[in-house]
Amino acid sequence: MSANALDLRGLRAGYGRYDVLRDVDLQVAPGEAVGLLGPNGAGKTTLLRAVMGLVKHRTGVISIAGTDVVRMPAHKIARGLAALVPEGRRLFVDQPIEDNLLLGALHLRRDKARVSELLESVYALFPVLRDVRNRPAGALSGGQQQMVAIGRMLMSDPTVLLLDEPSLGLAPIAIGEVAEALERLREEGRSILVVEQRVDLALRMCDRIYVLAGGEVALEEQARALGEDGRALIDAYLG
């Protein structure tokens, strides 16, 4: 049996002396899209940051495709193991879109053919970006900026994709475009862990759902078992 794309076991992590995550077990199988839901302050963003090595790890296992990344520096995790679309996108707004994308492929810079191939695949996923590739990222609409952030993540050719609230602050049309792109990535067999406040969107995009509450896993369930609108889930955990 192949290793999980992402495997967290007994994970404790936090800031300073404060533990945000407490004994979290979470798995993402290869080719699986997993949604992470929970109220504000539940530790969803901290979990993604812990996987990327950006938050102090206390105990437990973080493994990506069988590689233990607990003691690995963040910049090495980012070199093909995991990639993050952070909340708020955090693009380099003064730099052109294509430069933002190329910075995602930093570790592949010597393999120019691979970088060109990845760049083409991003433009195939988001054709609108090709036409505006020389514009500063800060000059784009929120939806287009989210496309750049997703494209930048894909440029590192990672084993597992991590997305933090990809729909946050976007107009309904832009949310539809971003959700469509994520569904295409899921169909391509990418391993995805997405934090999402909108339950309907998470249920549409994901195979399996985890609910995090107070830094602990409160529920793990197949998405289809939670209904189309997830009303019972919202009432029980997110109301």
Binding site: L54, A74, A78, L84, P86, R90, F92, V93, H107
Partner: peptide
């Protein structure tokens, strides 16, 4: 330039 703008994000890009 990226590190000057957002060092943590630059780290998260490798």
């Amino acid at each position: 330039m990226a590190i000057a703008h957002d060092p943590e994000m630059a780290t998260a890009l490798g």
